[in-house]
């Protein structure tokens, strides 16, 4: 599976599962880009069936509801990207603390 890497400041492992068509996923990518942090992402709707299944399996460890964008931070927590203000705040705080270290 081709996981795309975006270069930037390394503040931890940031993995974004997105849909290429989803406006909220685009917003999440734009936010990550504007923070200039290093992250990886995959557009799940562009994967083959087998690859898609492995993503579903991976995400099932984190949530029982397949929803995008799904942002996994340092392999330890899942944020549903920009769709939730509380999560957005939490994520921004986390990112800013590390960016300004």
């Amino acid at each position: 599976m081709e996981i795309k890497q975006v270069e930037g400041k390394d503040i931890g492992t940031i993995m974004l599962y997105a849909l290429s068509t989803c406006p909220w996923c685009k917003k999440t990518k734009a936010l990550l880009n504007s923070l200039n942090v290093k992250y990886s992402y995959v557009d799940v709707d562009l994967l083959t069936d087998d690859e898609e299944q492995s993503v579903e399996e991976e995400l099932s460890h984190w949530t029982n509801q397949l929803a995008f964008p799904a942002l996994i931070i340092n392999n330890e927590k899942l944020l549903s990207g920009l769709k939730n203000r509380k999560l957005e705040k939490l994520w921004s705080q986390w990112a800013h603390e590390r960016i300004h270290d």
Binding site: L19, T21, C22, P23, D45, L66
Partner: peptide, 16 residues
Amino acid sequence: TNMERYGYPLCPCRLT
């Protein structure tokens, strides 16, 4: 895009 890809306007925020 989804219309072209699937032949119907699938919700852009959900996976087929």
